[in-house]
């Protein structure tokens, strides 16, 4: 049994401490916006925030998270009002299949919290998510648009 705080709510989840955070979020709490892509922290589709910092949840054991605050894609706009990153994503029509975009949006949201006006070099260093549809050109445009919003 582990205690978790996800999107501002407390949960008791019945998993081994070694269970990756990703699977606790998806299978215990039931939030499926956070995706499984590789399971080895390579693709970033599972990116969530822990105390505001981007983390690849597939490789983070629940036991190591403890009471820290976890935010998933569902927690970005709980009242239905899109964040400026989500709005920029909508305006620039970033997603194609969309499967990687939850993780992409979480990574970008964390970047902008730290660096509100990132340069292209900042973006290149911070955003290492894989997108097989190849949306990077729109991702970059949308990051700058969100930064200037």
């Amino acid at each position: 049994m582990a205690k978790m705080n996800v999107n501002g709510k407390n949960y008791d989840v019945d998993v081994e401490p070694s269970t990756p955070l990703l699977w606790a979020i998806r299978e215990q709490i039931g939030l499926t916006g956070t995706k499984y892509g590789c399971g080895v922290a390579q693709c970033g589709a599972c990116t969530v925030h822990i105390n505001g910092a981007p983390v690849r949840s597939c490789s983070m054991p629940v036991g190591a998270v403890g009471a820290k605050k976890v935010t998933t894609i569902e927690g970005l706009a709980p009242d239905g009002v899109l964040t400026k990153v989500q709005k920029a994503w909508l305006e620039n029509e970033v997603p194609q299949c969309g499967y990687c975009q939850s993780g992409m949006i979480m990574a970008v949201t964390a970047l902008l919290a730290k660096k509100p006006k990132p340069t292209d070099a900042d973006i290149n260093a911070a955003i290492t998510n894989i997108c097989r549809c190849g949306t990077f050109q729109q991702v970059r445009e949308a990051i700058h648009a969100a930064a200037n919003a």
Binding site: L31, G33, Y36, E74, Q86, E93, P95, S102
Partner: peptide, 20 residues
């Protein structure tokens, strides 16, 4: 505009992997 963007921004879009 694409008709299928919104749910892909909020985690609502259900893929096969998410189906229950």
């Amino acid at each position: 505009r694409r008709l299928d963007t919104m749910d892909k921004l909020t985690g609502k879009q259900i893929y096969g992997a998410d189906f229950k």
